[in-house]
Structure formats: C-alpha cells, structure tokens
Write a protein that binds this DNA or RNA. Structure first.
Lengths: 230, 230
DNA sequence: GGAATAGTGTCTCTGAGACATTATCTG
DNA sequence: CAGATAATGTCTCAGAGACACTATTCC
C-alpha cells in the first residue's frame, strides 16, 4: 500500500437501504420518489451520503431514522453488499454500501426531507419497477438475502412484534417466500427447533375464532435444523 | 439525495483480499508484511486503492494478479463485506471492500511491489496474528464465509484442480472445516448430490496404493441437500 | 507378500412432507 | 348455533451418522 497521492482520487460513499416489513400481511419495501436529477421522478431506495466521521452502519441507522422515524433498536439492520461500478451514478464516482433493514409493521410514511414522495410498495411490484441507479439489483439482492435468512436464522421474528402467534409467524414465511405452508408441519417445525420460540402462557382474545397463544423469541440466532423453503 | 457539496467530503476506497488455498493439504491464506507506515512490519491482507474508473471487482482482480501472478479465470472471487469504521486507517478516512478469493494450489510468493514480504500462512496461525488495521476481523469473516459456503455451494471445487479424486475433495472439507469426516458417508453424500461431481472415467496411477478415480465438476453451483459440517 | 491407499453396504434414527379433524372463541 | 380461527397426530420416505472390510496398486 502506498501513500495517498493524486493517483488515488477520493470517491463519494453513500449508503442505500432495503427496508422490508409486513404491512397488512403483505411483504413490503420502502421506496422514495426522486425529487432531483438524476433520475428525477423515478423511484429509488432511500439512502444518502456518509459523513466524514461516521461509521457506515451509523449512516445507515441515520437514514433509516430519517426515512421511517423508527430508531435502531426496533429494527434489524445488516450490511448487504457494496455496489461500485463506475457510471452507476452519472454525476461522479459513487460507491454505495447497501444495508438490509427489517422491522415489524413499520409506520406509514409520506414525503421526506429530500424526496418528492415516499411509500411502501408490495415487494413483487417494486421488483417490476424501473428503479433509479442500480437499485433494482440492490433490491433483488436484499429480497433474496431476507428470503434465505428466514431459513437458517431467526430473521422472521424481526417481522413481528415481541409477542406474536403461530399463525402470524407462519404468515411471515408465507408472505416473504410467496408460498403456502402446512400449519401442522409448520407448528411442529417451529416448536421443535431448539431456542426459536417459547410460549408466554398468554392468549390473544377478542378476535373472532379460537384465541391464539402468544409466543416470544427464545434467543436462538441460528436455527438448527433450518426451516425449509418448500 | 442532494447535490455533491463540501458537506459530503470524498473518502478513499480500497479493496482488501482474503486469498485462500490449500498448500500441501493445509488451509492457507496469503499475507503481506507491511513495508511502510502505518503498521510497518505487521502482517496484513493484500490490497490497494481502487482507481477512479475501475469497478471494485476489477480492482480486486488486479490486486490478486499483482500479488499472486494468477489471473481471474483460475480463481473464484466474491465480495465479502465493506469495512468503514472511521479511524480504521489512522491516516485518513478509508473504506475498504473486502473480497474472498479461492484457488487451487496457488503459487509460492515472495515480496511484492509495495510490501516487504509476502507468504502463505496456515489459516489458524494467521488468525492468531496481530494483523494491521482491522484485518483480523476481515480474515475471520472471510474464513467463516468459506467454511459456510462449503456446505451449500460447490466452493470446495475451487480448492482443487479441474480433475481431482474423492480423497482430495474430502481433504478440502477436512482442512477448511478442521474436522475429520467418514470416507464412506462422504463419498455417498457427494455422489448422491445431484450435479456436484461426475466421473471422468480416468484414474490417477503411479502413486502408492490403489489408483484413485478422477472426478470433475458436474455443473451445480448450489448443493441440495447441503453438505453437513459435523 | 506387505504396505499403502481407494472404495464400498447396512442399520438405525431423525426429520420432512402429506394429510383431516377437533377445540374454542365471538356474534 | 353458526361462522371463524387455532391447534394437533400419524404414516411414509429420505437422508445422516455410525461402523469394518475388501480391492488394487507399488515395491
């Protein structure tokens, strides 16, 4: 490694966020409509520049809070990948580190500091949009990461509140994977996977039908054996 | 996203490489001894600055070739993660995207353009070194990525030549995972995993003992069902 | 023929997948 | 009591893990 000289010109660094949640049982992602050039009027992932003295993950938390109003504790955040092709931003060389955020029932949003509009999109619809920059690729990678992490980690629990029911948890898997699962096999699998969920002893009453028992996380971060995607 | 102003100062971007191979059956990583400050005399991952008009992955290929003399085709390269804590480089703000490289029996190396020395280290030893920057973290992440990708992808085949024997393949798993495997169960598993390996019809003779049949890759990139790490 | 290395079969157990009925609540 | 929703058990099949001997070569 050599000393810094003009041979190694600086590069702009941004973070972009793939923020996933379940809204009314639908797998959804937050997109913002661009208010300025380039790509004015096109939908994009929320994101922004990294400050000079700011860690990448802190920049991601800051953008997350700015866009959703939700603080870091309530939301799972993990690095996805870094996208750095020259020309991905027509203005200048910009390298972007993408983060995946997952939260339970994140709030409705409208507008933003520097965006014309912002709203939740059903993930399948969002994947069909012609997004700004290389955000279609990033979104696809984020969705795939979430889908595969449902298999072998407790990521599904980030899509539901601290207390949840077995049918709600099954709904997470069904919405994110886009498949139907058998409730008998699902419940058996969840129950027998050591440390995944635990009974709270309480029930959720008041709705139609038989009351559902409330569960909570039991602490395991990785699932052995994993859940099977079909 | 706003326009570029002095509010968003540029940042230096580098790539670092975790280059893994098997040398005489030992799981090994390439480290370079730093010839300049900071961290002069400490061991580090090979890496360097990204050029202004160079894609990140191209910078990684370039560094790989500079350090090992091996071109891209022979080596598997994938992005690992990006490390961007302020202060990780004492000189200025540097964000580094790390890549994982895996090749079969990569050549001996000595010295380098900008390094005092370079050599292959047994991975376990390297993990015990006090590496420069945050390279201990990066190395740990790279090794864990390789270990887990042996389970569900054909990454093991990148550690061996195009034609290889069943005991050689088993040796990859044993060296990288650091565990002993049962040859009967191993061969059954490999053989029954659709598209993993195929017989070439040839044998390797000339060594002591019964000749080993030569196998080759059969094309599958992901293994279903996965190999099991103990 | 001896040393070295490659190659293989069986049994048991665990977990996945297919499948329909009963239980408990609200209105 | 009707409608809605939650909860659960059995059978079959596939794959993992434990385990020891035979086959083929070189010297």
């Amino acid at each position: 490694m050599v000393a810094y000289t003009s041979e190694h010109p600086p590069i702009f660094v941004t973070v972009d966020l793939v923020i996933l949640t379940l809204r009314e049982g639908m797998f959804a992602v937050l997109l913002v409509e661009r208010g300025g050039e380039p790509f004015r009027g096109r939908w994009a992932l929320p994101g922004g520049f990294v400050h000079v003295d700011e860690d990448l993950v802190d920049a991601a938390y800051r953008e997350l809070e700015e866009e959703t109003g939700v603080g870091g504790d309530a939301v799972h955040l993990e690095q996805l990948a870094t996208y750095g092709a020259p020309g991905r931003d027509p203005r200048s060389r910009v390298v972007s580190t993408a983060y995946l955020a997952v939260g339970a029932d994140l709030p409705e949003v409208r507008g933003g500091s520097d965006a014309a509009d912002a709203r939740w999109w059903p993930v399948e619809e969002a994947l069909g949009l012609d997004l700004a920059f290389d955000h279609r690729t990033i979104l696809g990678d984020g969705v795939e990461r979430a889908r595969s992490k449902l298999e072998y980690t407790d990521l599904a629990l980030r899509f539901v509140p601290a207390r949840f029911t077995m049918p709600e948890l099954q709904g997470v898997y069904e919405a994110v994977w886009g498949t139907a699962l058998d409730p008998r096999n699902f419940a058996r699998k969840v129950t027998r996977t050591e440390g995944f969920v635990r009974e709270t002893g309480e029930e959720r009453r008041g709705a139609r039908g038989r009351p559902a028992r409330l569960l909570e996380a039991a602490g395991a971060r990785t699932l052995m054996p994993p859940m099977m995607r079909e």
